[in-house]
Amino acid sequence: MKKITIFAGHYGSGKTNLAVNAALALKRRHDSVILCDMDIVNPYFRTKDSEAILSEAGVRLISPRFANSNVDLPYLPAEVAAIFGGNYVSVIDVGGDDSGAIALGQYADRIKAVGYDMLLVLNARRYLTLEPTEAVEIMHEIESASSLRFTGLINNTNLGHESTAETVTQARNYMEAVSKETGLPLVATSYREDLSPALTPQDGVAWPIKIYEKPGWALY
């Protein structure tokens, strides 16, 4: 277990929800867990929406100071430094694409010094990453913007409320292609906990996840 685990990837690949799930899971094994929201690109659908659940579980949330307020200023608080010290293990939720990863880059040296995993979250059914080559391109753009290297892939393929077990397993060839092209291992396959995809060891760790923040307009 590295001190810092980073979730990065394309817009809408599911980074934020995975980061919330990961932080809550980590809290069951570690006393001091931080979820650090570095998304200063998009003011909608962010970790701040899950603040109550996180705080109840005892996860410390560090997010842009004015997140979800009237002044959404694109800067990160000095408090981010907490992820490098003490007994904390941290999960970082990065903004989408390379533009979101720029905010991460300023901490690259310190992140490397304490040790990290950076996971590329992929959804094979997201329109601008339908081709493995498109996913690889975004990967390179994020690495270049953040000055950090990815260490693994996560298959988070889903179709929202129309997801089935097959939606998850149909992405196997896609993930294999990305893995082959990048040399990165597929470390986990995540899926809504009510689905039971038939996974094999090649899919990595099976990771059933909860969907936090089910809104009033949701169709499921």
Partner: peptide, 15 residues
Amino acid sequence: ADKVLMKGNEALAES
């Protein structure tokens, strides 16, 4: 074609 997952804003632009 197979369904894809899109954000409303992206869907408006692509269509």
